[in-house]
Design a binder for these strands. Sequence first.
DNA 1: TCCTTACGTAAGCAACTGCCTACATAGTGC
DNA 2: GCACTATGTAGGCAGTTGCTTACGTAAGGA
Lengths: 138, 138
Amino acid sequence: MPIATDPLSRIFFALADPTRRAMLERLAAGGATVGALAEPFAMSRPAVSQHLGVLEQAGLIERTRQGQWRSCALRPEGLDDAERWVAEHRAAWQSRFDRLDATLADLARGHDASATSTSTSTSTSTSTTEPPTEEKEQ
Amino acid sequence: MPIATDPLSRIFFALADPTRRAMLERLAAGGATVGALAEPFAMSRPAVSQHLGVLEQAGLIERTRQGQWRSCALRPEGLDDAERWVAEHRAAWQSRFDRLDATLADLARGHDASATSTSTSTSTSTSTTEPPTEEKEQ
DNA sequence: TCCTTACGTAAGCAACTGCCTACATAGTGC
DNA sequence: GCACTATGTAGGCAGTTGCTTACGTAAGGA
């Protein structure tokens, strides 16, 4: 991921590491210092710091100075975007698959069906024969 | 991520790329061939193939032979793990923050809040003074 | 049979990650 | 002031990603 720019990518990227997820789960039990977080992970402090930097950039945690310690705390709303995306898409996919049963009959007709979808019919019009514009198992 | 091993990491990693998310969104409208997917992305076919490989390894899509085309289709259940993780954690974090409001008054006092912590207090016991065991209301 | 299309794989490259070991910075306590 | 602690930053390294251009493989059609 070349400099993941958008927030969603940053969030998913931050979550795509077991160490970082473990840190989040640990932080879910309460704020902690970097040192406290480093302990269970058998990892140098700078490494932990970098992981926390990723989580912070993703908006999943906040780091605040507390005297000579850095207190790390979760930002629950940081997961909002990710939760929304996943929930929306999983629901959409699921419903599509449910609806599929209904449209399957039409598709089975074999004609190009003008693609039940709105734009999927783009298809590579350069193809010799028609590619399976819109199909489904069975 | 060094060879993301666990399924959850693979899923989040696959989602952590705008191109792959766009591919999923396109596939949500219906199955498509690799060529059809490559078109809107201004990207070589092998690159698309590799992205699809990542999505396939994450269990988010399936590729099946259909004549001379490869038909790509979503696997809605592939998002289950991710959705579960995000939903569970966001809810847990949120509830924690809600409960926090109750204890906030105590913490605002500034004293170490009797550190009701269970294990976070592990802390680096070598510290001169007590690290901010942090709020921690179970 | 040969040619075209669709797609994957292989090899190579720039960029990034993740980790480390120093070193620098900021706060606490003497 | 000085030492000590906690943490971030800088530089360097191995490994991975993401992209490219070749080339190979499989299916369809003349």
